[in-house]
Design a binder for these strands. Structure first.
Lengths: 344, 344
DNA sequence: CTGTTAGCGCTTTCAA
DNA sequence: TTGAAAGCGCTAACAG
C-alpha cells in the first residue's frame, strides 16, 4: 500500500519514466509501446490508482456537477422530479447537487449563488413561491451557464422550460365536475405568484365559463401553501358558507386531502353531497376513503426531460448563440376515483 | 466586462503587480499596503472577480462536498432526513450531493464508488434493503474518508451511527395495543435484512411476551417494501384468516395505510374491530379517517445530528486514530390517534 | 511591502 | 516511442 492517494507521478517515479508517458499509457495512447503500457497498468492496478477528478476538472474547466434548486425536497412532487433528473444525469456521468429555497426568494438567491460559485456545469430550477421576479435567474443565464426552468414558469424569462399544462389539467377536472352535475364548484387556489397556481385557477375559470356558469368569488379561496392544513383552513370556510359548494377542486392533493377531512368531519357525504378533486395524484391519494380523484402529472418524465435538455445544452456549443428556446409542455391526465361522481 | 471568468492573474496584469500580491490583497493580508489593496479590490469588484473553487480545492485537497446515499429520495422519510442534513451542511459552507441506491446492493456499490471518485469530503449512508453485507462500506471507511451511517444500521460495521430506537417504538405500539384490549395482534414486517425491520419485529415480539401472549406465526407477514401495495397484500391475507386479527402493527405508515384501506373495504370497523398502528407518522397520516395512530421518529433531527457528527469528524484530525465510535440512538414516540382504541 | 518560485495532479503541445 | 515544459487558478514559503 502506498500513500493515501496514488498519483500519476508516483507511478512515473516507480517506473523511471515521465508522468506524461504514464498519462498516455493510462489512456491507451497509440504511440506508447505495449511493454510500457503493461508496466504502467500493472503498477496502477497494484497501487489502486484513481485519477484525481479535481485536477482533471480544473484543467477542463468543468465540474461534472448539475445543480438542482427546488422549493422543498420533502414534497413528493419535487423529490420525484429530482429522482427523474438523477436517473438521467448519473447515467451521463454527472453528479447531482441539490439545494432547496424553502419557498423563499432570499434563500433562492443565496443558494443559486453558492452553486454558481461552486462552478457547477448546469442548473435545473423551479422557483420558490416567494419569488416574484427573475433578475437573479436572468443574471445567471447571462453569465453563460446552461439552465432549464421546470414545473414552475418564470414568466418573462427567456429560457428552456419544461412545464406541465396546468391550465389543461384544471380545465379537465372542473369540466368533469360540471358534467357530473355539480352546480357550485369551489376552488382552493395556491399562492398567486406561482405560474402553476394561476394557470390552474384560469383552467378552473374557463371551464366554468365554457358551461356558462357564473363565477362566484366566495367560492375561490387562495391559500399560502400546499399542505393539508391549508386545505383544512379553506374547506372550513367553504362548508360554513350559507350556501356551501357541492364540489371542490383543490390546487393539489395536499389541500384536497385536508379539505376532504373537514368535509367528512362536517358530516357531508363525498361525493354525493360534495365532490372533491385534487392535483398531483400522490401515492397515498388512492388509499383515502373515498379514494381521491386527482390530476396526474408526468413528474418523473418532467425531471428526465429537463435533465436531457440541460445536458444537450451543455454539449452543444451553440450555448452562446442561443436565440430560440425549448418550451416543453407535458400533458396531465385526470384520474377519476371515488371522491367525484361517475359520468354515465 | 472582461472574459467569462476573471482570474487573479488578469487582475495582476492589469495592475502590473504579481498574482501573489493580488491573492494577498484579496485576503486582506496584513503585509499589503492599503493603496494596493484598494486598487486590487476595485478591479476585482469592477470585473466581478470570483475565486475559482476548483483551483482552491485542488490545492487544499478537498471538495467541500458531502455526499448522501439513500435508498429512495421519494420516500418522505428520507427526503426529510436529507432536508435536515442540508440545513446543517450548507450552514457550514458545504454542498450536498445526493444519490440513491434504489434499494439495490449493486446500485449502492456503484454510487458509493462514483462519489468516492469525485473525492467528496464525507459520506452519509443509509444502506439499501438489498444490502446484506458491508464490505464495500468498510472499504470506504478504511480509505480514510469520514462517514456516518444513519437510520438503517450496518450490523457488524464499526462506524459512527445515528439510529432510531426502532425496538422501543415498536414495543410502545404493541404494548399500547395490548393495553387497549387487543387479543390477536398482527405485524406486517418489513424486509428482513434491514435493521429497522428486524428491530421493530423484535419490539413487537417482546411486547407480546411481556404480556404473556403466545406468538402466532400466521399473524406475522413479511413484505418486500414500504408502499401501500404491500400493506394491501398483507392485510388481504390477514382479513381472510379463519380467525382474523383484531389489531395490526405495520412496519411503517405506508403499509399501514394500505392495510387500513383493505380492512375498511372488507367491512371491518376501525378501531372497534381492528386497530391499526403505523410507524413514521407521515404528514398525511393524520388526515385519514380514522386518523392513523403512528410511531413518530425524529427524522429531521436524525439528519441534522448525522451531519453534525460527520462535520466534526472531518475537522477533528483524530480521523485516523479513531478507536471509539459514536452511537446515537434517538427516541421515537407513539402518537395516538383514532385508528387505535383509547386507553382509560 | 512585494515578487519569484514551486506545486496541487493532470493533459497536451512541441521536440527529440 | 518518449520526455520536457507549459499551464489550468490559486496559495505559500522564501527572498528580497
Amino acid at each position: 500500500m502506498k500513500k493515501a492517494q496514488v498519483t500519476i507521478t508516483d507511478i512515473a517515479r516507480e517506473l523511471n519514466i515521465s508522468a506524461s508517458t504514464v498519462s498516455r499509457a493510462l489512456h491507451n495512447h497509440h504511440a506508447i509501446c505495449e511493454e510500457t503500457k503493461r508496466a504502467v497498468m500493472e503498477v496502477a492496478q497494484r497501487w489502486n490508482y484513481q485519477p484525481n477528478m479535481q485536477a482533471l476538472n480544473l484543467l477542463k474547466r468543468k465540474t461534472n456537477i448539475i445543480g438542482i434548486v427546488v422549493p422543498e425536497i420533502t414534497s413528493h412532487f419535487f423529490s420525484t422530479a429530482i429522482s427523474g433528473v438523477q436517473d438521467i444525469v448519473t447515467s451521463h456521468g454527472y453528479n447531482l447537487m441539490i439545494s432547496q429555497s424553502n419557498e423563499s426568494f432570499e434563500d433562492e438567491i443565496k443558494t443559486l449563488n453558492t452553486l454558481f460559485l461552486s462552478r457547477i456545469d448546469g442548473f435545473l430550477i423551479s422557483p420558490a413561491s416567494g419569488t416574484f421576479q427573475f433578475d437573479h435567474i436572468n443574471k445567471l443565464k447571462n453569465s453563460g451557464i446552461p439552465l432549464v426552468i421546470f414545473d414552475r414558469d418564470c414568466e418573462g424569462l427567456e429560457a428552456d422550460k419544461v412545464l406541465v399544462d396546468d391550465y389543461d389539467g384544471a380545465f379537465q377536472a372542473v369540466d368533469y365536475l360540471v358534467k357530473t352535475g355539480c352546480q357550485r364548484i369551489a376552488h382552493i387556489a395556491g399562492p398567486a405568484n406561482l405560474s402553476t397556481s394561476s394557470h390552474r385557477l384560469n383552467g378552473y375559470l374557463d371551464a366554468l365559463k365554457k358551461h356558462n356558469r357564473d363565477i362566484d368569488e366566495e367560492l375561490i379561496i387562495e391559500v399560502g401553501g400546499f399542505s393539508p392544513e391549508f386545505g383544512v383552513e379553506a374547506a372550513t370556510k367553504l362548508v360554513n358558507l350559507p350556501n356551501p359548494p357541492d364540489a371542490i377542486f383543490g390546487v393539489n392533493d395536499g389541500v384536497a386531502i385536508g379539505a376532504m377531512y373537514v368535509i367528512k368531519e362536517a358530516g357531508f357525504v363525498i361525493p354525493d353531497q360534495i365532490s372533491i378533486i385534487g392535483f398531483d395524484d400522490e401515492p397515498y391519494s388512492s388509499y383515502f376513503m373515498p379514494s381521491l380523484t386527482s390530476v396526474w402529472q408526468p413528474v418523473l418524465e418532467m425531471g428526465m426531460l429537463s435533465a436531457r435538455i440541460l445536458l444537450k445544452n451543455m454539449t452543444t456549443e451553440a450555448k452562446m448563440a442561443k436565440e430560440v428556446y425549448r418550451h416543453e409542455i407535458l400533458k396531465p391526465e385526470l384520474v377519476v376515483r371515488n371522491s367525484s361522481k361517475k359520468l354515465y
